[in-house]
Amino acid sequence: MEYDLLIIGGGVAGLTLAQTLQDRLKVLLVEESSLGGVASSLGCKATDECLSCGVCHFVDLKREIVFRKFNVLTDRKITSFAKSGNKFQIKTEKGEEITSQLLTVATGAAPLEVKNLSRLGGGKLPRVYSGWDVEKGLNEGIISSFRDFSSLAFIQCAGSRNFKEKRGYCSQVCCRYALRIAENLKFSFPQMNIDFYYMDLQILGKKKEKLWEIADKINLIRHLPYEVKEEEGRLSLLFEEQGVERKKYDALILSVGMVPSPGTQQTGKRLGLNFDSGGFIKSYGQGHTSCEGVFVCGTACGPKDIETAREEAQIVAEEIWRVRRG
C-alpha cells in the first residue's frame, strides 16, 4: 500500500493533521492502541463557568472522527522502518507493508509516573495523588472523594525543571491544570485550606485573567518541599519559608509534568532523529526534524497543551502540503 503521508500516533496532534490533510493527500494514520492519546482520558474542568482547559477540543475532534472516517490502522505496533530512495517502508506487527513518501511522528508525551517521586511520597504514601490521576478522575467525580479533607497541598514542578534528572524543561501545562483543579476544589468545598507550593506561576494562553484570580485566592508558598512523611495519619511536609518548617496536610496532589512517551523515544531512535536535552524529538521549525521527509508535531517535540498542539499541527500540515506539492 502506498501513501503520501504516514502519521504515527493518533492523539490530538496526529488526528488534527489527518483531518487537515485527508482531503488533499493520501494519508494513513497508525496507532499502537486506540485513537485519542493522552487527551482522551482527561476530564472537563469547568465549575459553574468554563475555565478554558481545552479538553472539549478533543471531544470535537472525536465527533469529526465518527462523522468522517479517517484512514486509520489501530492496535498496530510498527516493527521496522526502512528507507529506500526517498520513500519510507514500514512494517507492522500484523504484517502490513506500507510505503509512504513522508512520515510524521506524533507519538506524544506521557505524564511522569509518581513512583519516580518517592521523595515526595509518590507511590509510597496514601492520599498522595498525581495531578494526572485527579484529571482522569474528574469525569467520574473524584472531587467528591476529597470531601473529608480539611487541608490539601499542591506540589508543583514534580519532576519538571530538574536538570539533575535530565528533565530541565518546564512542562507548561501543570501550573494551569493545578490551578483549575484547585478552583474546582474551592468551588465544591469552600472551607478547604489549599496551599500551593511552587517555583514560578506559568500562566499563559487563554483565560489568563481568570487563572490569576484563582491564584490570588489560594495560599501560594514559593518553595518546593524537601520531603514528605506520614505522621499520625497525616502527611507532613518539610519546607522552608521563613525558616525550616513542617506543615501537615490530609492529602497531597503532585503536579506531575510531561515526559516523552515510550513510543516517542523508540520511534525517534529507530529513525535516527536528533533529540533535545529533555528527550523530546528536536524540531527545527515548522515540524522539520534532522531527517529529511520526517516531520514531528504535537507533544512529541516538547510539552504543550491541547489547543497549542492543534494549532501547531495545522501549521505543520500546511508545511507538509507545501513540501509535497514541491
Binding site: 518546564c170 507548561q172 514560578d200 506559568q202 499563559l204
Partner: peptide
C-alpha cells in the same frame, strides 16, 4: 514577580 519559563528554550 514571576519568571516565565513555559516556552520553547526559555528554561535553558
Amino acid at each position: 514577580e514571576e519568571v516565565l519559563v513555559a516556552g520553547e528554550n526559555l528554561e535553558k
